[in-house]
Simulated assay, not measured.
Amino acid sequence: MIKLGEAELAKYPFLADAGQHLPEYGFTLEQLAQDPDLAVVREKAFNRIYTTTQTGKIYKPSPKGSTALPLEVLSFILAIVLLKQSRANFLIKKFAMQEARGAERFLERDLGQGTTDIQIETTRKIIWDLAHIEISKRDRYFVIAVPDYLHRAVLFHAREWKLINRQVKDGWVYLNPHETVRLIRQELVNYISDKISSAATPPVVSGLQDMVDKLILLNSKFQPQIAYSDKNPPCVQHAIDTLSDGKNLSHAGRFMLATYLLSRGYNVKEIAPYFKNAPDYNESITLYQLNHLAGKSGNNTQYACQSCAKLKSANLCYATSECEGIHNPMQFGVKR
């Protein structure tokens, strides 16, 4: 694991060893929970969770030099403690997703704007630690071996990610900083999620109980009561189950689920709760997109559920014997 300085740890606090950093800075969990002088850490830790899970906004670290305390690392560590103590599984998934998005911005900026070989090398090593992927800089591009690229690009459905549409030379794929970082997004999310999952769950100490109780309440709001039909086609049920488990569903999968439910006669308010457990859920954006698909905005055209052939091409088909003879999910269960 690369040894990072305070500036890098402020941007990538999940790379810090939580078990070592508290004593390294001379703090115990009890001090973080009770010391009046450390109230700023407690407030920042809770707000860090609230901002990322409730507003859908990406957390922004404090300006450099705004305090003598290593606020970003300490608040991240305490945020993990609070999430573990509250057993807020849905909040944990959302927190990991948004922290990953924030780290993406820093990685992209550091790759694209690194002015020294040391800065770029540090960022390359961070990416290696996160995703075990070797990248090299060539002119204004970053290159990755074809096998490493294909292993990750298979998760993307947009045409620009197809190998035939990429610049390839001598077994290397050429990418800009944004594409390089986007390629490892899921691994970044998994890294942070694993970091939280593997962290110990200490007993709740005095000074943290109120925040833990608030997180338990917030977490309960992400468990909507939805009536699931046993007559949904397998592709739709898979999408519902994915979201219900708090996992990320691709854009194509969300489009399929929304258009299917709209075609079944559901209205926007009835459909929105299906997406509430998505790690990147944002209520206003979800309602806007659903209204657009329902034809209530934009060109006033309601989008139809895509055919089975299109869903297969997007790797969204989970056909069973009951799907035999149908060409669109809307035909599932219809007697022929």
Rank of each mutant, 00 (worst) to 15 (best):
A199T: 09
P13E: 06
L155C: 01
Q113P: 02
P61Q: 12
L311P: 03
G298P: 11
T259C: 06
V204I: 15
F222V: 06
I240T: 05
Y149V: 01
Y303V: 10
I326V: 05
K335M: 15
H151K: 15
V154Q: 15
N315T: 05
K231C: 04
L155V: 02
E6K: 14
Y12V: 04
S198P: 01
P61Y: 12
Y281E: 03
Q113E: 13
L261Y: 00
P23A: 03
T301D: 06
L130E: 12
K57I: 05
K169Q: 14
K247L: 13
F27L: 11
Y228I: 13
F255C: 08
E99S: 14
L175T: 09
F332H: 13
G295A: 06
A88D: 04
E283F: 14
R42Q: 08
V334P: 02
V143R: 13
L249C: 08
Q289R: 05
A33M: 12
Y25D: 04
S193K: 07
A278C: 07
Q167D: 04
K335T: 15
A319Q: 00
L249W: 08
A278L: 15
V154E: 15
D117I: 11
R254Q: 13
R105L: 11
L71F: 07
L316A: 02
A158M: 01
T55A: 05
N248P: 05
T242F: 06
A68D: 10
E43G: 13
E322D: 08
K60S: 13
L82F: 03
L208H: 08
N190T: 14
I2P: 07
V204W: 02
F95S: 02
S66K: 15
N277F: 00
A45V: 09
T301S: 07
V212C: 05
V168E: 11
A314D: 10
D37P: 01
L175G: 07
L29N: 12
T53K: 07
G333S: 10
V168P: 04
E104K: 11
L74H: 00
E324H: 02
H178Q: 04
A88H: 04
I2K: 12
K169F: 11
M1P: 10
H251R: 10
P329Y: 00
A88N: 05
V212H: 03
Q119P: 01
T55V: 03
I271K: 03
I285Y: 09
S198Q: 15
I92K: 14
H251Y: 08
G26W: 07
I144L: 15
W161A: 00
H132R: 15
G333I: 05
I77A: 14
K247A: 12
P147R: 13
K231V: 04
L188K: 12
Y260N: 01
L29M: 11
Q223W: 08
Q225T: 06
V205E: 11
A319D: 00
L243C: 11
I126G: 12
T51G: 10
E72S: 14
G102S: 09
D37F: 12
L287I: 14
N89K: 14
S263F: 00
L261C: 00
I285T: 13
Q113I: 03
